[in-house]
């Protein structure tokens, strides 16, 4: 019986599996969807250097043909029975899977923008999310819902993040740099379009992110307004009116735009949220899995033999996800070695 189980076939679960298989260890990889790759499959190019996401995903192309890998697709894990040894995973369809060790790589989901009603998502067609824009960029086709080329686009930062009103007080870390990435890509496709980013703080935490910000100003004439969107309305011609304060000037601002892109934040997946109600694994204040500590055990859980990989513990970039997944694989390997002796 193969016992190492990995829940989630996103980039984190794929990297963990790849490393364990490389060590000659058999792995059961469980994915609820019908395809591997997770959220990354929806995105066109990646910050910081516009590498196509397909290139990163391509590194795992040959994984499914590895005979040591048992791949369970369309299998959604609903609960973990901690009373058995090994632990038992139960799927929605009633399959029981032994797991020891278990690596949880269930990732994230994006904030449901409909919950910020005043921003107009789901009410006005011109209001879209950053995930929807990624799909348009992937198809090299950015148009308004009415088939027109948008002449002005406003990117709205911090949607569903840093917002006590929706219960997400944390910063999602990646949406500032994602906005800049998307603004540049949009400008490349639509050079005549005016682009404005509405931000509260610009968080360019990566070594080369500030350069991209500078480049957005220098090469692409992207405008930055310091102020958070307060509300959206629609005109008869379907264009949008947005209200904010230009806080650096200190006056309220109104702007017409053809399209609004909401930079939706990253939230814990349903799988981790459910542990807030059922005991077994610790959930932090923000709904993500809580690692043993924030320094040298970020991929360990409080439970023996259970490890975390990737965005199941909080927002991370692709590079950070892959590194974290490697740490999880290493932890799982030393756990197995310790057990042998």
């Amino acid at each position: 019986m193969k016992k190492i189980a990995v829940i989630g076939g996103g980039i984190a679960g794929l990297e963990v599996s790849r490393l364990l298989l490389q060590e000659g260890l058999p792995v059961t990889l469980i994915e609820k969807g019908s395809r591997l790759g997770g959220n990354l499959r929806n995105y066109a190019h990646l910050f910081p250097d516009f590498t196509p996401s397909d290139e990163i995903l391509g590194n795992y192309r040959f994984l499914p043909s590895n005979s040591d890998l048992q791949l369970l697709m369309n299998t959604q894990i609903e609960s973990i029975d901690f009373s058995t040894q090994p632990y038992t995973l139960h799927s929605k369809d009633g399959i029981a899977i032994p797991a020891d060790p278990l690596i949880i790589a269930t990732g994230y989901q994006v904030f449901d923008a409909k919950l910020k009603e005043e921003f107009g998502y789901g009410i006005y067609d011109g209001v879209i999310t950053s995930v929807e824009l990624e799909k348009m960029i992937k198809q090299h086709h950015i148009v308004t819902p009415y088939g027109k080329i948008p002449r002005r686009i406003a990117f709205i930062h911090c949607v569903g993040s840093r917002d006590a009103k929706v219960g997400n007080s944390y910063c999602s870390r990646l949406c500032c740099i994602t906005a800049i990435k998307q603004a540049i890509e949009t400008k490349k496709l639509l050079p005549e379009t005016e682009i404005f980013c509405f931000y509260i703080d610009l968080r360019m935490y990566g070594l080369t992110f500030e350069e991209l910000y500078l480049n957005a100003q220098k090469e692409y004439n992207i405008q930055f307004v310091r102020g958070r969107l307060s509300e959206t309305s629609e005109m008869i011609d379907k264009r949008l009116i947005i209200k904010a304060e230009d806080t650096l000037i200190g006056r309220p601002l109104q702007m017409k735009a053809d399209m609004l892109v909401l930079m939706v934040g990253m939230e814990a997946s349903d799988f981790s949220k459910q542990f807030a109600y059922h005991n077994g694994l610790e959930i932090g204040d923000h709904g993500f899995f809580q690692p043993l500590n924030q320094f040298n055990a970020r991929s360990k859980s409080q439970k023996e033999g259970i490890f975390f990989a990737g965005t199941s513990i909080g927002p991370m970039s692709v590079a950070e996800t892959i590194e974290h997944a490697r740490a999880a694989a290493l932890s799982a390997i030393s756990y197995l070695k310790d057990k042998e002796y």
Partner: peptide
């Protein structure tokens, strides 16, 4: 955090130079 949402939506601020954030 001086985000300005209050000022943008403020009833008084929409008719006068009143700026609650400032």
């Amino acid at each position: 955090i001086s985000c300005g949402c209050c000022t943008a939506t403020c009833s008084a601020g929409n008719h006068t130079t009143f700026n609650i954030r400032r």
